[in-house]
Design a protein around this nucleic acid. Structure first.
Lengths: 126, 126
DNA sequence: ACTGGTGTACTATACTTATAGTACAATGTT
DNA sequence: AACATTGTACTATAAGTATAGTACACCAGT
């Protein structure tokens, strides 16, 4: 099951964050072909966004054949193999780190200190 | 000198990308207090965006006392200082790390990868 | 057949973002 | 004093994003 998380401060539209997280979830093997996604209403409530926002995300992925929807039943992971390019992965990593360094810098925390703290989490790499 | 680059596909507004890159440049020691930034017109041409877009970015940073502007002269890196108690700082560090480990995990990025990326920036950070 | 849950389709509104264009104000140099 | 360069302040337009609300269509149970 995917653990959706929206960051309103990132500037990235919600529907795009949802799309990204589903695509990355498929690429990293967190969800498999045939898995059912949360219903549009359930996810809207969970993420505290509008029904239309989730719908927009699902619809775009459905157009790309990444999701398969059955009206009345639900939305499922399609059989298309999603390939997130290493370039895209790298961009995401870079973007996250920049946000991270900026957020920390506001409090006078240096990248070096961040690294030290992060080492405590290294075990969870899976 | 900062090497600005905009990614139109990221979904992040241009003016925000400019803000982020300036802040990131400060956090990682690429620019120092007193350095002059490109003029609003020069940067607008360089990035192929509108004058107003650059202005918006500079203005927001000026409000935050991160930049200092002198009409007729230019825009410069300000000398902001953040005073936070070490206890508060430590708590913030922990909180920020947890947030980012979670945010990264959503995209299949491990703490170890975060550390690797961060190491690129630990050099000049004070 | 009915009911509840699913996705879908619309209208309308508000806010944000980006652009274009114009004009003005402050500074420094000549 | 004149000029070029800087930041600033408007108006107007267009596109994108998010919300609210309503209604409908499809499917699987009972």
């Amino acid at each position: 099951m995917l653990d959706f998380q929206l960051d309103p401060r990132s500037g990235v539209p919600f529907y795009r964050q949802i799309i990204d997280q589903i695509r990355f979830g498929m690429a990293t093997g967190r969800v498999k072909v045939g898995d059912q996604l949360p219903t549009v209403r359930a996810l809207a409530v969970q993420l505290k966004v509008n029904l239309n926002t989730v719908t927009k995300a699902y619809k775009e992925l459905e157009i790309q054949k990444i999701l398969e929807t059955q009206q009345g039943t639900g939305t499922f992971i399609g059989s298309i193999k999603v390939n997130v390019s290493t370039k895209e992965k790298q961009a995401k990593l870079k973007s996250i780190c920049e946000d991270y360094v900026n957020a920390a810098a506001v409090y006078g925390i240096t990248p070096k200190q961040l690294i030290e703290e992060l080492k405590k989490h290294e075990g969870n790499s899976k």
